[in-house]
Amino acid sequence: MPATKRTRHLLNSTFRVALLSVGCFFVLLPVIWMALTSLKSADEVFKTPPVWLFSPQWGNYAEVMRLVPFQRFILNTATIVGLTVLGTLLSCSFAAYGFARLRAPGKKFWFTLLMATLMLPSTVTLVPTYIMFNKLGWLNTFAPLVVPAFFGSAFFIFLFRQFYLSIPREVEEAARIDGASYLRIWWSMFVPLSFPVIATVTVFTFVGAYNDFFGPVIYLTDESKQTIAVALSYFSGSPRIGPQMHLMMAATTIAALPSIVVFLLAQRYFVRGIVLSGVNK
């Protein structure tokens, strides 16, 4: 009987692994196709039926670097993404601490109003925001893409607040007895304890800022200040380069690597932060 159970368990495990492997293959198929297309020649990309066995054209990646100032785009993107992540973490965690721990008249009303802004599409505020940045003289600078992050985001404030509610009040009360101020408690106690939610917000913010195409196109006019997301469009039909599918796939492969690496590094904390941020009211 035990042997029969072990055999049944082995068959069930094998079936689940096989099923998950097939599902994983279909999920990763677009990524595999992208990587393979990036190594094809221009003629092999559009052949029917598709070419699966070919001589890899590793020079496509060097050609991408030659046709566009990709190093400059990477530096611009890193600057924008780094400042956006920093501003989002500081502003959202600080505001969330106030909503979670401090007492103030009308706090629930203001938090409800903050959550209501999630229903407001960003396109509704696009024109007045553009006019405001134009009046400030911020067009063709990184400021419109970076400065708003230092004023918080409703969704991320919600995540931080939910996580802070799970921290025992005894920890905060002990710090208050020792004479710590609210600012010191937030910075020295709550921020170090909230690493899972910090990882979650970092991943969301990184992917959002890294893949942002609309913002750089609207606010940046100089090519030397553009980002990677805009650079990818150069290979889909710009007058200077023309449609180059194999080169666009090579550029897309390069552009996708940072997001994949960031998610893999923060995956464990990312999932934990999502779970812990939703268990409190």
Rank of each mutant, 00 (worst) to 15 (best):
D222Q: 10
W138K: 04
T4P: 10
K108P: 03
T202Q: 04
I80F: 05
V45M: 03
K5D: 15
L232W: 01
I218A: 09
C24T: 13
F25G: 12
Q244W: 06
A100V: 03
L75Q: 14
L114I: 09
V31H: 14
T141D: 08
P258K: 05
L183R: 06
W52N: 08
E172F: 05
L28Y: 12
A18E: 11
F142T: 10
S188Q: 14
S38N: 12
G23N: 11
A229P: 06
T129R: 11
L102M: 11
Q71T: 14
I157G: 00
T205M: 07
P243N: 13
F46L: 15
K5L: 14
L139T: 03
P69V: 03
K225L: 12
S181G: 15
L29Q: 14
L276T: 04
V51S: 12
R72N: 15
R169P: 13
L257N: 10
W58V: 10
L19R: 08
V217M: 08
V201Y: 01
F70L: 05
L86F: 08
T200E: 00
R8V: 02
A18W: 07
D178N: 14
M1N: 04
F73V: 01
K40A: 01
A96D: 00
S41E: 05
F142I: 14
S224L: 13
F190V: 05
S13M: 08
V124K: 13
G82S: 15
S21C: 07
Q162D: 12
W52S: 15
Y210Q: 11
D222S: 14
L86T: 11
S277F: 03
K40M: 04
G237P: 02
P128I: 09
Y269D: 13
V203N: 00
L165A: 09
F235Y: 06
S194F: 02
F195Q: 13
S194Q: 02
L257V: 14
A116I: 14
K40V: 01
V147L: 06
A256P: 03
A180I: 04
L67M: 13
V81Y: 01
L89V: 05
F160W: 03
P168K: 10
P56A: 04
V191L: 15
R16I: 07
A209M: 12
R66H: 07
A116P: 05
